[in-house]
């Protein structure tokens, strides 16, 4: 009789262990975390990504941004001039905006008039500039991951990217992992 009792306890312990593991995994799946894939390099879209990120960070939500493709232009530092690029990389470098101040609008760009007007309005209405937003994001611990593959495609070098406190380079699997454990995922 005692013997069967012992086996039951052991089985119960096993089940409890299995459940604890499962719950732990589930909790990790819905972390208070926001993952955004920032793919667009338009001023309006990068602005949207940053405003949402700042609001989330202010609400104590961990924010993880994955910058890829056109959005990389926003992370270029106009003061840095990397050497040793091949011809195509150089051409790309010249054709793409050098940094967040040079981004164009997805609508009503009007040859640069649009962004100028938006920036004027933002100032007038006390909206933070993109520069300021990145500074705040850095202070709030917003993480930025740059897509390694896009860097290669566009011919960008790590030396020409902005100085940002929480910057790293990784691949798509990193975004998938970040997004998988986040309660919120966005694609901009």
């Amino acid at each position: 009789m005692e013997n069967t009792n012992e086996i039951t306890m052991e089985m119960l312990q096993k089940q409890v262990d299995a459940l604890t593991k499962k719950v732990g995994k589930l909790e990790k799946n819905r972390k208070d975390q926001l993952a955004i894939a920032v793919v667009s390099g338009d001023l309006d879209k990068v602005l949207a990504a940053m405003v949402i990120s700042l609001a989330a960070a202010a609400m104590d939500t961990q924010v993880k941004l994955f910058f890829s493709f056109w959005s990389l232009s926003a992370l270029r530092d106009p003061k840095k001039h990397p050497k040793g690029k091949d011809f195509i990389s150089k051409m790309f470098g010249i054709m793409l905006p050098t940094g967040k101040d040079k981004l164009t609008l997805s609508n009503m760009n009007m040859g640069g008039m649009g962004p100028m007007m938006i920036k004027m309005l933002m100032k007038k209405q006390n909206v933070m500039s993109l520069d300021e937003m990145f500074k705040q994001a850095g202070e709030l611990g917003v993480e930025i991951t740059i897509c390694e593959m896009s860097m290669g495609l566009m011919g960008f070098k790590a030396e020409e990217m902005i100085d940002y406190p929480h910057l790293r380079y990784a691949g798509a699997a990193t975004f998938v992992a970040d997004a998988g454990e986040s309660a919120m995922q966005l694609f901009i």
Partner: peptide, 13 residues
Amino acid sequence: RGTACPGPLLAAK
């Protein structure tokens, strides 16, 4: 007062 969304929230935090 000198900042628009999400400025006040950041200031509060």
